[in-house]
Amino acid sequence: MADIAVSRAGTVNGAGGRTSLHRLMQRKSTVAFLMALPLITVIVLLVVYPAIYSLHLATLNKSMERFVGFGNFTFLFGRETFWLVVKQSCIFAITAVVFKALIGFVVAHFVHNIPSKGQRKWRGMLLVPWVIPPAMSTLAWLWLFDPSYSAFNWILALFGIDPVPWTGDAYWARFSVILVNIWIGAPFFMIMYLAALKSVPEQLYEAAAIDGATWWQRIWYVTLPMMRNIIAITTLFSLIVTFANFDIVRVLTAGGPLDHTHVFATWAFRVGIEGGDIPLGASVSLFMVPILAVAAWFILRDITKRGNEA
């Protein structure tokens, strides 16, 4: 539509400069760019600029007066707590993503098999944890895990079981933050997998059934290959978001006890904002960027390759 409209206007104006401008405006790509410009501006202001600025900050000394190159990173590599945070972030992100994917996959199958009449209700209910702002739902979990007045411990006490130090013991605290992350994030996997399941052609299952495929073989040879791309993208997306998680840990344990639940974002905040060392905080938060970028590149390359093959 835009091409036609602009093309007519172009023939009316004959002057050289204006003609080339009109020719430029005739292009679909120009129109598309102009329409996307507000969004691009927002991204540049709120994503690109802060990202570049944080890169700049990461190269400054503590008082932000001197360029130190990679000095902040070499300093971090010598800190015991930093490696503890790296280890915990990996445990947190990988465990949470694996369980979110598994639970999402299983629940998506359950929901898929519910007759379509009642399916919408279930989909809505199952999405609730993902829809509630995490800071709010984590507050509710905090009350359930409260050191002195835990509702879970109250229930355990009814059965004569000793109270569990949900947020007071390093291992239980790790378990608690991962559990809450899974609770919040599993519905996202569920809805993505459900969409993927619905797009698998029924004929493939029929053909598999005719060939005598078992339930497991149908999953392994039909469902999983058909969902491969969506699984890869969902996992990548969730991995990035989980590595960057802040609110759950901040609200539930604030990184404690003894720093045993800190992840990159919470430790960066502790060091950068609370500790008054903004360049070091910026370095902590940037540490995962190259690793995740490489992972993203491999996963996306694989997806593109499969897309081309198809």
């Binding site: 050191p147 002195s148 007045y149 130090p165 949900w166 947020t167 007071g168 605290a173 344990t253 604030a254 404690g256 006890p257 003894l258």
Partner: peptide
């Protein structure tokens, strides 16, 4: 002290 003291935040002592 209470056994869960390492997990206390600024609200815990008030509640206590």
């Amino acid at each position: 002290l209470p056994p869960d003291a390492p997990a206390w935040d600024d609200a815990s002592n008030n509640k206590w």
